[in-house]
Simulated scan of single mutants.
Amino acid sequence: MTEYERSRTMPAQPEQVYDQAANVGQMDAWLPEALHVHAGEPPAVTVHEDRTDQDTFALLRSRREQMRLEWGTREQGSYSGWLQVAGIGGGASEVTVHLSFFDERHDPGERAVGDALDTSLRRLEEQVRLRVEHAAG
């Protein structure tokens, strides 16, 4: 098993960050650009990957009371992950994303995963900033 994790501080309350991250209809705005989540019968989702043009059946669980999203593949059990939002005071939050690959054939490698996590967290921060600025103005 291989695991990866990245964190990023965001200038917003944890509830605002979590609500943006957990909105299935807007996940394409912050997930890696090649991934698209389509909601099914909760907690079921389908993840489409542009690079392979394949759909993967997955589960996505939202635990708002814990400010946590959890996901993973349904049938083959080769991949799982979670996103945790924590308030750090002063109107800011820290977001941590953790990925676990149980099957090395599905692990794109440390550099690719690190780049994808960093980019996704940056994109999520941009979406959160837009949401906070829109609500304020």
Results as ranks from 00 to 15, higher is better:
78 S>P: 02
54 Q>I: 02
96 T>F: 00
23 N>V: 02
127 Q>Y: 03
91 G>R: 01
35 L>C: 05
89 G>Y: 06
61 R>H: 12
81 G>K: 03
59 L>N: 08
137 G>N: 09
95 V>K: 03
36 H>R: 00
128 V>F: 04
54 Q>V: 11
12 A>L: 01
15 E>M: 11
111 R>E: 14
63 R>E: 15
34 A>V: 03
135 A>M: 09
7 S>E: 06
92 A>Q: 15
89 G>W: 10
97 V>T: 10
6 R>F: 05
2 T>N: 15
54 Q>N: 07
19 D>L: 09
16 Q>W: 04
64 R>M: 03
105 R>K: 11
63 R>P: 00
80 S>N: 14
46 T>R: 13
67 M>I: 03
57 F>M: 06
68 R>S: 07
38 H>K: 14
86 A>P: 01
113 V>Q: 09
5 E>Q: 15
55 D>H: 05
32 P>D: 12
65 E>C: 00
37 V>G: 01
5 E>F: 03
12 A>V: 01
13 Q>K: 12
12 A>D: 07
62 S>E: 13
114 G>V: 07
52 T>H: 08
133 E>W: 08
59 L>P: 01
67 M>A: 15
17 V>Y: 05
21 A>D: 08
5 E>P: 00
106 H>D: 10
107 D>G: 04
103 D>Y: 11
102 F>W: 12
88 I>L: 11
80 S>R: 11
29 A>V: 03
15 E>A: 15
65 E>D: 14
44 A>E: 09
22 A>Q: 02
115 D>I: 08
61 R>W: 13
64 R>Y: 10
3 E>W: 02
27 M>Q: 10
2 T>K: 14
